[in-house]
Write a protein that binds this DNA or RNA. Structure first.
Lengths: 230, 230
DNA sequence: GTTCCGTGTTACCATGTTGTTACCGCGCCA
DNA sequence: TGGCGCGGTAACAACATGGTAACACGGAAC
């Protein structure tokens, strides 16, 4: 179980590392926001302990970037104990928020609680099936009920995954851009390109999509689900 | 999204209920440990907010019993702020632990964080229904009782939303202009344009509106409601 | 090096959306 | 009776958006 600790106070970082190692976790560390993102991408840890007050890139920004790409559990640390700060942190996607100073043992307990919940929930399978369409994330392939598998590019997988994970819901253009390219990444032109390319691959008739619906002025939605609205 | 609140302090229980209801949750309550278990079995809520200091059956015991049967998320409340207490609570299977006193808004944020992790879709329903007309804000569509959905433009959605949210009331021309275009945005000509276009889309007979009524010299009102709001 | 693939860029067209102007009819009031 | 303000209707221009296509670039594979 690998944990990334992002904390610029070296002494505190050491204390946390020590405690968590003793609790049986694999620990990697970063001391500023940019390094954190690099480490995260390279190691893909199972959980991130994230200080908010960081040099180079703010902790909230780091959280946003990680959330744009993955669902890695995040526990925030901060001296800010105000309600607004905590609510903001949680709404940005954190799983827990601890106010400094805190006791290492409580951190361990909270990490375990979050990981327990993730373990109970997360499907380790790299496959995702909605309606008649199946996406295999590890092989970069989509398959349509008995038909031959279709090879997808990494970006196409990201897009299709985002849409399928939120099947039936409308995802905004900007949100999708963030999800696929990360904040500061793409633009509308590239998104429509990507949607077009994906459609030509997976739609039987791209002019009349049965999977990816356009909601003009808003975004796109994955359909073909029995959506079970009610 | 149904939440069971277990809290013996009736005043606090009411405050929490009120806040969570306002946040859009379905609330059921219990005021002692045994009642909590009964309620839990009968209603199988999506999450439990559990005070630890309870009559009849201790909160920790309640937690244990629930955990023995199911994986329902649990957020513990307690005046005990010691590390041992928190660690014990989390190790017993709680997903989060909040020390009293706490702010309602933080509780809402933490509930959302846990539910998000569990994978619950808590889309606060982007739909708005008044009388026989239904507006889907996320899809920019209006639907009239069984008939096909009608695609609306963003501005039309803004206008219709304003009218429907205040169904039965008269909204002034200037107020509507502000709502739709923002201060410094539109003029009367554009509003009447927009009303006209909206009417041609949603009214069966635009010359005799059944939804959008004109109040000359004042503004517009959404009708077709059994108004009688309770 | 050459080829191929994934990606980014530019361009074009059709359509949809919004802003503008104009005209009509009606009730009001001098 | 004749302006005047108001609201409904219409036509049109300006602009934004989405789909399509062709091409350029860079890195990986051969």
């Amino acid at each position: 179980m690998k944990i990334l600790i992002v904390e610029d106070d070296l002494a505190l970082s050491d204390v946390i590392s020590f405690t968590l190692r003793r609790a049986g976790f694999d620990i990697i560390t970063a001391h500023d926001g940019l390094a954190a993102l690099t480490m995260w991408e390279q190691h893909l840890p199972d959980l991130v302990v994230l200080d908010l007050n960081l040099p180079k890139l703010d902790g909230l920004a780091v959280c946003k970037r990680i959330r744009a790409q993955a669902d890695t559990p995040i526990i925030m640390l901060s001296v800010r104990s105000s309600d607004e700060a905590i609510v903001q942190g949680l709404e940005l996607g954190a799983d827990d928020y601890m106010v400094k100073p805190f006791s290492p043992s409580q951190l361990v307990a909270r990490i375990r609680a979050v990981l327990r919940r993730v373990g109970a929930t997360l499907t380790p399978s790299s496959e995702l099936m909605v309606g008649t369409l199946q996406l295999d994330r590890s092989r970069n392939e989509a398959q349509c009920l008995g038909q031959a598998a279709i090879r997808l590019t990494p970006l196409e997988v990201r897009l299709l995954e985002a849409l399928m994970l939120n099947a039936g819901q409308v995802l905004s253009t900007d949100g999708l851009i963030d999800t696929v390219w990360g904040v500061e990444g793409g633009d509308r032109t590239m998104l429509k390109q990507l949607v077009y390319r994906l459609r030509t691959k997976i739609e039987p008739d791209p002019t009349q999509p049965i999977y990816i619906e356009t909601i003009p002025g808003v975004g796109y939605a994955f359909i073909n689900a029995k959506s079970a609205k009610g």
